[in-house]
Amino acid sequence: MTDIATEKKQLRQKYIQERSHLNPIQWQKKCDRISLNLLKHPLIQESQVILSYISHKQEPDLSLLYRHHPIIWGIPRCQGKDLIWHQWHWGKKLRRGAYSIFEPYKTSPKIDLETVQLILVPAVACDKKGYRLGYGGGFYDRLLAQKPWQNIPTMGIIFDFAYVEKLPTEKWDQPLNYICTEKEIIPISGSRL
């Protein structure tokens, strides 16, 4: 394992552990503040198709956003090393899939990728240059490196304690355009959009 990979692994453990120590009331308050910040943001208000995620391992939960912004949400389903995006609306059933993450059924309608206006990206931590620390599977870095995705704005979703000065990066890491915490939404200066 490289030094960067080891450092990322240690940071991942640190921030996941910090997240797991939030009591349920603190966690829900922070999640709701994140959703409220998103609901007020022009990118969210102007978008009709947004790719997002279902909270896992005490990630920020966006249920309040999904309930109050009834647009077409794209939720991923893992297929090998790729994410397949399916339409989802608040209240529609999901199944436990890869990594025990809730995901749409295979039979759910797929998202027309040309209609996607924003991607909300789950993260363990993000830094001031827009780099994110994920779980190490590389799903989002592979996705965001592909041509059709490079012109769609991206927003990392984290708790404020996981917004740090600088994360270790590797050549394949893809920076995000915005970071959303329970305190604010931060545009990343010099981002590609």
Score class of each variant (00 low, 15 high):
residue 190 G to Q: 08
residue 63 S to F: 06
residue 91 G to H: 07
residue 103 E to R: 00
residue 137 G to N: 07
residue 21 H to A: 12
residue 115 T to Q: 13
residue 45 Q to F: 05
residue 90 W to A: 09
residue 55 S to H: 10
residue 67 R to Y: 02
residue 39 L to P: 15
residue 7 E to Q: 14
residue 37 N to V: 05
residue 40 K to W: 05
residue 158 I to G: 00
residue 75 I to G: 09
residue 36 L to E: 11
residue 96 R to N: 07
residue 136 G to V: 10
residue 58 Q to N: 13
residue 175 P to S: 12
residue 18 E to P: 00
residue 7 E to I: 08
residue 100 S to V: 01
residue 178 Y to G: 10
residue 10 Q to V: 11
residue 93 K to P: 06
residue 86 H to Y: 09
residue 154 T to S: 07
residue 36 L to G: 10
residue 29 K to W: 10
residue 124 V to H: 04
residue 153 P to A: 04
residue 33 R to T: 02
residue 185 I to H: 00
residue 173 D to H: 04
residue 18 E to D: 11
residue 191 S to I: 00
residue 96 R to I: 10
residue 58 Q to F: 02
residue 87 Q to I: 03
residue 42 P to A: 10
residue 177 N to G: 08
residue 11 L to C: 04
residue 193 L to T: 11
residue 102 F to T: 08
residue 51 L to T: 01
residue 106 K to S: 15
residue 148 P to N: 09
residue 189 S to V: 12
residue 37 N to L: 12
residue 64 L to V: 11
residue 61 D to N: 06
residue 4 I to P: 10
residue 38 L to G: 02
residue 142 R to C: 06
residue 50 I to Q: 00
residue 137 G to K: 10
residue 52 S to H: 02
residue 24 P to C: 03
residue 186 I to W: 04
residue 179 I to M: 02
residue 111 I to Q: 01
residue 146 Q to F: 01
residue 176 L to Q: 03
residue 24 P to G: 09
residue 86 H to V: 08
residue 153 P to C: 04
residue 77 R to E: 15
residue 15 Y to L: 14
residue 175 P to G: 05
residue 126 C to H: 08
residue 177 N to I: 00
residue 141 D to W: 04
residue 16 I to L: 14
residue 2 T to D: 09
residue 181 T to L: 01
residue 35 S to D: 04
residue 163 Y to A: 10
residue 90 W to D: 14
residue 59 E to T: 11
residue 158 I to S: 02
residue 178 Y to H: 06
residue 112 D to I: 05
residue 144 L to I: 07
residue 14 K to N: 08
residue 165 E to D: 15
residue 102 F to A: 12
residue 22 L to S: 03
residue 71 I to P: 02
residue 84 I to K: 11
residue 85 W to D: 00
residue 110 K to I: 13
residue 173 D to E: 06
residue 151 N to F: 08
residue 16 I to Q: 12
residue 163 Y to G: 02
residue 56 H to D: 09
